[in-house]
Each structure stands twice: as structure tokens, then as C-alpha cells.
Design a protein around this nucleic acid. Structure first.
Length: 422
DNA sequence: TCTGGGGTCCTAGGACCC
DNA sequence: TCTGGGGTCCTAGGACCC
């Protein structure tokens, strides 16, 4: 039997903030999304007050003030840095690690000849000691079971932060699965719950006992895998090397109303350069670029939203190629007189960088020169800070940039904001 | 539980082609 | 002019995740 392990930081963003500001201890804290739109993380105290994600912050402000809730804008450089520390500590516990998200990773502990609960407790205390962050650990025979075990470790204090479902006798396992709702299962989202309920499937045990082939017909192959995984067959392998993305999206809501083509052009150029950086990082080329702009779906004013896709004559990873095409698309879909709320771009038709051909007219001509320019650009920006060198059409003032009124400092990643210890 | 953020993958349906 | 088959591309939107 496999021993797949999922480690997850509790209320990650809120915990990071608390590490650098101990005064937040004992106070309800929420961390807000970009543009201070909605809560995306909160500590236990805020949860206990009944705050839910996806309620717009402006609707919660009054309530928050009344109960002394501290709200913070999200500080991604800080969280990314803390994440790297946690992941590097955990990598010492197994040669097989998959970093699944900013605050979660899988470790394969199959064949480890020792008590895994003790081992997991050791991880917890080391991470706590070295970073100040609390984590929970779940172990199971598949990724889906490891996720579920982690859920149990988090929700039930008697487990003290670690749950190994592989240690359970079958009856005990089924009993606990019968007490958990299907919405807690990985891959079962909001839309699937009512459809499953209609089939009489309400608890994890119900789902585990359903017929995988029939469920595949009714739903999809993903559902079949989930059921087999709940039954202890690992169908989803650990991905130690992140698979190449098939599409790369970059989009953002604006911090203030945007009407003019100039501002939209600047933002679209910025998103394109971000997406191309990601593209080059995974050593791929893309052929197709999509640009979209839209007004706020919540606005009572007249709405406008438009998407347009164009393919290059040959695959490329050059920011300037995509920027010139992207700006052309933008011009073609832009209509004046609307209050734009969001713009985004997507790169698709992604192919590996190795062995690319040029088109008939040599669009990807003098490859070495162009590639070197982008490599140097990436290197400088890595060393000297994001956007140190950029395409001129990104603009410098960026009045449309997102709103972050409540941000904490970049304690670990900016020299002038390092934490003071006096 | 109905939505205000960002990202990835997938697919239905229309337009257009041979 | 209508009908049918097969395929590709694009747009819009659904579904899931954190």
C-alpha cells in the first residue's frame, strides 16, 4: 500500500502575517484578494465569527470594525518566500515531493520503515520552529485519501494535526468516511454536490461504495478516478516535475475605473510580459494569443465584454512578438465609452521549445539573438527586481494598477522593509 | 448557498471549409 | 436550392482548484 502524504499550512496567508506581526495573535485576521476584493484567507478566530470567503469586502467592512477584525491586503512576495522555506524543509523528509500549491505539498513515504505519525509530528515541530508556521499532515493510500486525511487532521483536534488513514481498521475507516460530507472530497465542487445528492450520495462512504464504471458514464473519468482513489487505488501519480502548462493566463482587475485605450494597452502589455516569462521558464513556445476586456458584471451601466484570438505564423516565446499582436487585438476589440473593470490575456497552443521550425518567411529568424535578449531580460529582472527592465508600452505610472490599501511590508524580500528587531 | 480574485482545463455550439 | 458528412477554428462559459 502506498503512503502518500499531504502537508498543508493552516490558514497560510493569515499565518504568515502573524509570524511577522505577533500582535495579531488572538485577533481575528482576514487577508484580502487583489484589489481588496474578497477575503481569501482568515485565521480561526475570523472563521468563528462567520466570515465567509467570496463575500465582497466592502459589505463586511462595518461588521469587521464592530468586531475588531484586522484586514490585510495580500502580500504575495512575502507568502512566496515563506512557502519556499517550508517546501525546502519538507524536501528533506522524502526524495519524492510534489509542490502542489503555494501552501501544500505531497510527499511519497511509501516503504518508509517507521511510524509515520511520529515522522509527521517531527515535520510539524520542525516547520513550526524554523518558520513559525503551523501545518497539518494527512497520510493515505492515494492522493485523494491523503487530502481527506489532512482534512480530518485539521478539523478534529484529537488528532493533534496528524491523521494516517492507513493505520485505520476497515470498520473505523468506513465509520469516519460516513461522517464526512462529499463536498470535502478533492475534485467534488459546488456543482457536483446536488447531482450526487440526487443519486443518494451524500457522504464520502456513499461515494466510495458507488460503482466507478456507472459513475464514469454519468459524470466523467475524473469521477471514476476519485472513486477508485477513495478505495485505496492510487490513480493520480505524484508529479515531481511540474508538467508543462497547456495554457498560460494573466489577468487582473483594475484598482480604479479605466476608460481609455492607453491604460488598457499598458495593462495588456504587462500581462503579456508576465505570461511570456512563465512561458520561457517552462521552456515552451506558444502559437496563439487571446486578449479580452470587460466591464464589471456587477455594474448597472451598460456592459461590454469581448474576446479575440489570433495565432502567430510560428511558435514564439518573445514578449515583443506577442505584445505587438496583443496590442493589435486590443485595438480591434476596444470600444470607447465603457468603464472597463478587467483585462486579460491567454497564451495557448503551447509546444516544447526543443526542435521548433521557423515558418516559410523565417518569422523566428536569427533565433540566437532574439532568444539571448529575452534570457538577459529574465536574468536582470530576477536579480534586480520584477519589471526592472520592461517593454515601454507597459507605462510607468500605471494608474490602473491594483488597489492594496492594507498591505503589510515585504519583510523578507525587500532591503528597505526588512523586519526590525529592536 | 449567489457573486466582486486568479488560474487551468475542458467542451458546447456557431461559423466556415472541403 | 436543399441536404448530408466530416473537420477545424473560435468564442463563451462551465467546472474545478487555491
Amino acid at each position: 500500500m502506498r503512503s502518500i502524504t499531504l502537508i498543508d499550512v493552516n490558514s497560510f496567508y493569515a499565518s504568515c502575517e502573524r509570524v511577522f506581526n505577533p500582535r495579531l495573535e488572538g485577533i481575528p485576521v482576514v487577508v484580502l484578494s487583489n484589489n481588496d476584493g474578497i477575503p481569501i484567507a482568515m485565521n480561526a478566530l475570523a472563521k468563528a465569527l462567520g466570515i465567509t470567503m467570496s463575500t465582497p469586502w466592502f459589505k463586511l467592512k462595518g461588521f469587521a470594525k464592530q468586531y475588531g477584525i484586522v484586514a490585510l491586503s495580500s502580500n504575495y512576495p512575502l507568502y512566496a518566500d515563506m512557502s519556499n522555506r517550508v517546501m525546502s524543509i519538507l524536501s528533506q523528509y522524502s526524495p519524492d515531493q510534489e509542490i502542489y500549491s503555494i501552501d501544500e505539498c505531497f510527499l511519497d513515504l511509501t516503504g518508509f520503515n517507521r511510524n509515520l505519525v511520529d515522522y509527521a509530528q517531527d515535520m510539524r515541530s520542525r516547520i513550526k520552529q524554523w518558520t513559525g508556521l503551523p501545518v497539518c499532515v494527512g497520510v493515505g493510500a492515494s492522493k485523494t485519501l491523503a487530502k481527506l486525511a489532512n482534512h480530518i487532521a485539521k478539523k478534529r483536534p484529537e488528532y493533534n494535526g496528524v491523521c494516517n488513514l492507513n493505520d485505520f481498521e476497515p470498520e473505523r475507516l468506513n465509520k469516519i468516511l460516513s461522517e464526512i460530507h462529499i463536498s470535502s472530497v478533492w475534485s467534488i465542487g459546488r456543482r457536483l454536490v446536488p447531482r450526487l445528492n440526487a443519486l443518494g450520495i451524500k457522504t464520502v462512504l456513499d461515494l466510495k461504495n458507488s460503482d466507478p464504471e456507472y459513475m464514469r458514464q454519468q459524470f466523467s473519468v475524473v469521477m471514476e478516478k476519485t472513486i477508485r482513489e477513495l478505495n485505496g487505488t492510487a490513480c493520480i501519480e505524484l508529479e515531481e516535475v511540474a508538467p508543462r502548462k497547456k495554457q498560460i493566463l494573466s489577468s487582473r482587475s483594475f484598482g480604479q475605473p479605466v476608460y481609455d485605450l492607453q491604460s488598457l494597452s499598458e495593462s495588456v502589455t504587462l500581462y503579456i510580459s508576465r505570461a511570456c516569462e512563465k512561458l520561457r521558464k517552462q521552456k515552451s513556445y506558444a502559437i496563439t494569443i487571446t486578449v479580452y476586456i470587460r466591464t464589471s458584471p456587477f455594474s448597472i451601466e451598460e456592459q461590454y465584454s469581448k474576446t479575440r484570438t489570433v495565432s502567430l505564423p510560428a511558435p514564439s516565446d518573445d514578449t515583443r512578438h506577442f505584445a505587438s499582436v496583443g496590442l493589435w487585438i486590443l485595438k480591434s476589440i476596444y470600444k470607447s465609452g465603457f468603464n472597463y473593470q478587467k483585462a486579460g490575456i491567454m497564451l495557448s497552443n503551447i509546444v516544447p521549445a526543443e526542435g521548433q521550425q521557423t515558418d516559410l518567411f523565417g518569422f523566428k529568424q536569427s533565433i540566437s539573438k532574439q532568444d539571448n535578449l529575452m534570457i538577459v531580460l529574465d536574468e536582470i529582472n530576477t536579480k534586480m527586481g520584477k519589471q526592472c527592465i520592461r517593454i515601454a508600452s507597459q507605462g510607468y505610472k500605471q494608474p490602473w494598477a491594483m488597489k492594496q490599501e492594507l498591505k503589510s511590508k515585504s519583510f523578507t524580500t525587500k532591503w528597505d522593509e526588512l523586519i526590525e528587531t529592536n
